[in-house]
């Protein structure tokens, strides 16, 4: 098999390639923000007139909260009652699984094809 001779890329072309790559990366970083999908869902259920007892805090915990600068139960109530929302739909889980598995499948498939070229050029055809 004849060795593959790559074309020479112009300086301008090289710059374009780097810019494309960076634009895509920055796009991926900001896309969830623009779509308002970033961050995880929180719920917080602060009772009226919270006391340390109603928040379920024992004497040691209260002492530690005081030491951290939270002298009133009401100040810490928001923190103590905050909970993540872990509910999810089976559909979105399936979508995620398909995307992850599909991603690796695409890469491994294309890589294998390219790898066979590399090996046959390096070690010669069988």
């Amino acid at each position: 098999m004849a060795d593959y001779i790559p074309p020479v890329q112009s300086k301008f072309g090289q710059m374009i390639d780097v810019i494309v790559l960076l634009a895509l990366a920055i796009g991926a970083l900001y896309m969830p923000l623009w779509l308002g999908l970033a961050g995880s869902a929180h719920t917080s259920n602060v009772p009226d007139n919270p006391t340390w007892e109603s928040l379920g805090q024992n004497a040691t915990m209260v002492e530690k909260w005081n030491q951290l600068g939270y002298t009133e139960a009401a100040e810490a109530a928001e923190l103590i009652t905050a909970r993540f929302d872990y509910s999810f739909s089976i559909l979105s889980l399936l979508v995620m699984i398909v995307v992850v598995v599909g991603y690796y499948a695409i890469i491994l498939r294309f890589s294998e094809k390219e790898y066979r070229d590399v090996i046959s050029e390096k070690f010669g055809d069988r």
Binding site: A28, L37, F84
Partner: peptide, 22 residues
């Protein structure tokens, strides 16, 4: 990661898929 950050996960995988095709 999916519990809470699923959209980031998909956004980022889309990035890597597009870049891979490129």
């Amino acid at each position: 990661v999916f519990l809470g950050y699923g959209s980031q996960l998909v956004a980022m995988l889309s990035f890597y898929i597009v870049v891979s095709l490129w």
